[in-house]
Each structure stands twice: as C-alpha cells, then as structure tokens.
Design a protein around this nucleic acid. Structure first.
Lengths: 237, 237
DNA sequence: GCCATGCTTCGCCCATGATCGAACCATGAC
DNA sequence: GTCATGGTTCGATCATGGGCGAAGCATGGC
C-alpha cells in the first residue's frame, strides 16, 4: 500500500515539542548532557531520559559516555540537514514567531551543527562557487584545483581532512536565507579556521555566531560576493 | 529557549501513519479525493476528513473542489522535497522493509510529485549538468544558452514555462539514489515530454514509471551518462 | 567502606488525539 | 420536488504516550 520507506516514524520523533527542542539545541553542534537537554526542553530528568532513548533508537542522536555523564550529539550531518529542511519549510508557514532581537542575528550567522550557516554562510558558499573553487554537480560538491590552493591558503590542513570517511563537501539548505551553504568536513574546517583567526566566536547557549567588526571586514574581503547579475538569474530561472 | 521556527508542528503532522500514507500517495502527483485517500490510508471517511483538514491547515496540502468531489494535492514542490528528504533519511535507518518486487522498479524510475525521480531521474540530471546545459549555483539551478537549445529541441515549449511563478529549475534530493534530480517546472515538462514521446508511462495507483524497452534505449541516448572519472570524484570528495 | 551526583526504571495520572457510527449538509442526477 | 452520493460534524470510546515523583543503579570522589 504505502510505497517507499516509513516516513512517519522519523517525523513522529521530531514531532514532539520537547524532542524538537532538544534537537534544536543540539544544532549548536556541541554535545549536551541529559540534564542540560532536559533543562533546554523544560522537562524533568526522567521524561528527558525517555525522549532521548527514543531519539537514539530512531538514529537521530548518538550517545557518548564520559564518566558519570552521558553526552548526546546529532547522529550525523544528514540529521542536521533534515532538521534544517524542516526549519526551512516551517519558517515560511509559521506565523512570524516572536520577532525577538536574536532572530536577526540568527539569520545573519549561526552554527548549523558544526558549520557556518545564515547569510554569512551563504555568502561564503556563493563566493567559493563564483570563483570556481567549488563545483556543484549531482548531490556532490567538488573542490577544484584552485580551490585546494585557496583552502590551504586559508589555513586549513586538507590532508588531515581527506583521511576521514564522511563527505568532504556537502551543501545544506538554509532555512533563513533559503539558499545553500557549505557543510561537510570542509564546512566545519572553515568555521574552525574563522574562529582560530578570531574573526568571530560562538555565543554560548545559542546558535548565534558573533563576528567582530574587524572579523566581518576580513570575512567580506576573503569571500567577496558574487556579481549581482549572476545572482539575479539564478533565483527564479 | 528554542531558536528558529517551530519544527515540531510540521513534523507531528507528517508523524501520523495515516497522514504519512496519504502524503505518500499524493507523491504520485495526481490529486486524489477524500474517499480515495481514506482507502489509501486504510481508515474511515470521517477520520480521513479530519486528517486532511489538519494537513491543509499546516500548509502541506491544498484542496480543489470539483462538483461533489474534493480533490487534494500537495501544496507545493517544497512539500514534495521535504517528504523526499524524510524518505531519504528513513531509507537508511529502516530495517530493510519488505523487499517486494516493486521496490527495484521504484528505485529505477518513479514520479516525485510531478517530475522524474530515481536512477533515471538522477541520470538525466547528471547528464544535463555534465554537458553544461544546467548550471548549479547557490540553491538555484540555471539553464544555460546551450541548455535552452537542448530543451527546445526536446520538444518543450520554454516560453510557456517562463510565464509562471514557481522556479523553473529546482534540484530535489532523491531518497533511493541519494543524489539530486531535476524538479521544478522544467522537471515536470521533461516528464511530460517523455510521456508524450511514449518512452514511458506511469503505472496507475503507484509511483512507478515504466519505461518501454525502446523508450529506455532512446532515453539513454538522449541523456548519456557523465564520464566515470567525473562521478567518482564527486561522491566522496 | 561511605556519600554525592547523574541517569534510568517504575508506577501512576492525565491530556491529546485517532477512530468510528450516526446524523447532518451539499451537490448533482432524475 | 426526490433520491443518491460525497463530505463533514458530532459524540463517545479508547489507546498512546507525555509527564512527574520516588525509588533504584551506576559511577566517581573521599
């Protein structure tokens, strides 16, 4: 009767406010303990424990024990992409939400699991593509020869990255900008490099990435925007 | 506390087996009546009516009255993309499902809302990109000058397509092949052209698109696979 | 050994919502 | 008008599962 994989199981897991809140918190990228996640969702410890067990069973999160603590993190980049896709859809239909002061900051630059998202993330992605450092094809993204040079020049150790299994480049649809940004190990490496250069730092307890004035200036120089006539043709077709 | 849009509402809507079944049925692309959807989900009329009202309220489906009948269809291409993303994730973690004889056919070629998906869809997309007819940048896809020629030569009336609002090209992640295929109005036009050429036809009551032997031959000629060395570098980085 | 801390399990309560049958409306056929 | 058909609304039933407090296990510090 129903064709294809069972969607409803996964959707139902995300469909509970408490669990969704925990997942949203984990989108900050750092692993959190059961207690922290319980506080984040505004529920008690026993309840949180049950929720987390179900999320783990569904393959959405992965545990890591450390002494008396049990840390949870998103299971994979794919989960983060799925959550962003959901946010992207919900952002359009939602009734504006409370337009708190944090929302603009979130739109501008935030961490998406482990890489840079928001307008700055999109700008970086576009700039890399426009200058021929990154090539989109199929689902994959390819780093070109020139791209290798740029990345290395940016202070990223490519050799170390090549070793691991998960995809080097991955594009990730952004819920705020409704455009792609760069994920995968390379996306992570870029964010780390940006933090290492002290251009920006993550705000504790939030997904916001705060750029310093000087950092913003350097970022704009490093990732110049693509030419306007290019962008205009891309959007609508 | 929670940052970003409210995911859980949308996810909860999809998270019910009956509703998920209805949505999956609507992925075939044709609008279905309340009774048909009820039968599809294996529930009674009153229950189905209530479910559909909620789905409509959530912006996932859109109604269209026609005489005594009320037809429902997916609200937009975005909803289809979201559902495919969910299927994509669930396909990985699901316990193999029942490996019925229809699954391989589904993997090979199926309709995704209104365009071609599955291996054949991916092949078409890759071929178009590899030959420079389609250019990926940002979230958007652009049809190049050469692409315009190819599309027109394929028997698609581009002028008519340009008029409407929704994006001409859109890429859509495939749950079976885990790669992109072509959606949007152009994707729809390609599928219609393929059907018009009698290369394939949709199987009634299923998402499967059955190619004739001759049609498969012509398809392979029209959309030759990209060169192998290109593809190998794309996948893993 | 002891205690404190972090998490899990258990038992219970309660709200949500999925479901159906029956009655009700609205449209089209006659 | 009357009837049949497709959908909706209503009322009631019932299962799922979210929630918490209390007790039970671990682990680490002493």
């Amino acid at each position: 009767m129903t064709e294809g994989p069972d969607i409803s199981r996964t959707a139902a897991l995300i469909g509970d406010p408490a669990r969704a809140g925990m997942l949203a918190a984990l989108m900050r990228g750092q692993a959190l303990t059961v207690s922290e996640l319980a506080a984040e969702a505004g529920i008690g410890l026993p309840t949180a424990s049950a929720h987390l067990a179900r999320l783990e069973g569904g393959g959405l999160i992965a545990p890591r024990r450390q002494g008396r603590h049990k840390y949870f993190a998103l299971a994979s980049d794919e989960v983060a992409a799925l959550l962003e896709a959901l946010m992207r859809f919900s952002a359009g239909s939602a009734p504006a939400r409370l337009p708190g002061p944090r929302d603009p900051a979130l739109r501008q630059a935030r961490v998406c699991y482990n890489h840079l998202a928001g307008e700055r993330g999109v700008q970086m992605y576009d700039s890399l593509v426009a200058r021929g450092f990154l090539l989109a094809a199929g689902e994959g993204l390819r780093l070109t020869e020139e791209g290798v040079g740029f990345v290395t020049g940016f202070g990223i150790d490519l050799a170390a990255l090549q070793a691991a299994r998960p995809p080097l480049c991955r594009e990730c649809l952004d819920w705020s900008a409704r455009r792609s940004h760069l994920g995968g190990r390379l996306g992570r490496a870029f964010l780390l490099a940006i933090e290492a250069k002290d251009w920006a730092r993550r705000s504790p307890g939030s997904r916001v990435i705060a750029f310093t004035p000087e950092g913003a200036r350097r970022f704009a120089l490093a990732f110049p925007a693509a030419r306007a006539d290019d962008l205009s043709r891309i959007a609508g077709g």
